[in-house]
C-alpha cells in the first residue's frame, strides 16, 4: 500500500466503529475519486468541523463556536430549574429524541473508573456543582448509564449534591418497550419490580 493511502487507513481505523477493512474501503473509494468532488467536500466538512464546532461552555454538549452556549442552554422555553446529567454528549441527543425532558443538560464527559483512567478531575463535576449553586437548580436528574461504575458515579454525585441541598433523582431502570418478561435478566426485573409505579 502506498504511503499516503496507508496513513489515511491508519487514521480512519482509529474512528469508532471502523476496523481496518472498513478503513481500507473508505480510503480506496476516496483514492478513486477522479474529479476530487467527494474528497474536496470531505475536506471542507472536516475543516468546518474543526473551526466551527465547539463544546458548549455550560452543558458540555456539542455546539458551534458562534452559538456558545448551545441552543438548549439558551432556550427560554426550557425549565431552568431542572438539570439532567449525562455521561456523554451523545446521550443528550438520545434524551432529546424521547421528548420527555424539558429542562437543561450537563455532560460529565466520563465516569469514575480506574480501568478507563478517569478520576474526579476528569469529570465535569466541579462545573456541575457550580452550576447548581449559581443557576439555583431545584432538581438534578442523574441519567448515567446502568453499569456498576456509572451507578457508583451517580451515587458519588448524589452524595455531593445532597450537601448542596438540591433534590437529586436517578432515571428509572426497567424493561425495554416491546420486550418480554421471560427474556429479561434478573437484575432488570428486580429493578422494574422494586421501582414499580401505581396505576
Amino acid at each position: 500500500m502506498i504511503e499516503p493511502l496507508e496513513r489515511l487507513i491508519e487514521v480512519l481505523a482509529r474512528l469508532p466503529g471502523l476496523g481496518r477493512r472498513s478503513a481500507e474501503r473508505i480510503a480506496l473509494r476516496l483514492a478513486r475519486d477522479r474529479n476530487r468532488a467527494l474528497t474536496d467536500e470531505l475536506i471542507a466538512a472536516l475543516t468546518e468541523l474543526r473551526t466551527r464546532v465547539a463544546q458548549c461552555r455550560l452543558c458540555g454538549g456539542i455546539t458551534t463556536a458562534e452559538a456558545n452556549p448551545c441552543a438548549i442552554c439558551t432556550d427560554p422555553r426550557r425549565d431552568p430549574g431542572i438539570l439532567c446529567v449525562v455521561e456523554d454528549p451523545a446521550d443528550i441527543a438520545a434524551i432529546e429524541a424521547s421528548g420527555a425532558f424539558t429542562g437543561r443538560y450537563h455532560a460529565l464527559l466520563g465516569r469514575l473508573s480506574a480501568v478507563r483512567g478517569e478520576g474526579r478531575h476528569h469529570l465535569r463535576a466541579d462545573e456541575l456543582f457550580r452550576r447548581v449553586e449559581s443557576e439555583h437548580i431545584e432538581e438534578v436528574v442523574l441519567a448515567l448509564d446502568t453499569d456498576a461504575e456509572s451507578e457508583a458515579t451517580a451515587r458519588w454525585l448524589a452524595e455531593h449534591l445532597a450537601a448542596l441541598r438540591v433534590k437529586t433523582s436517578r432515571i428509572a431502570c426497567g424493561l425495554p418497550v416491546g420486550s418480554g418478561i421471560a427474556y429479561s435478566d434478573p437484575q432488570t426485573l428486580e429493578q422494574a419490580i422494586r421501582r414499580r409505579v401505581p396505576l
Partner: peptide, 26 residues
C-alpha cells in the same frame, strides 16, 4: 449472571476500590 453483587452498585466507595483492583488484575 450468577452473583450480581448489588452493594457494589450502591456504595460508590466500594465500587471505586473494585475498579482499582480490576486495573491491578488487568
Amino acid at each position: 449472571l450468577l452473583r450480581p453483587r448489588p452493594s457494589l452498585r450502591t456504595r460508590w466507595a466500594a465500587a471505586s476500590a473494585a475498579s482499582a483492583a480490576a486495573e491491578l488484575l488487568l
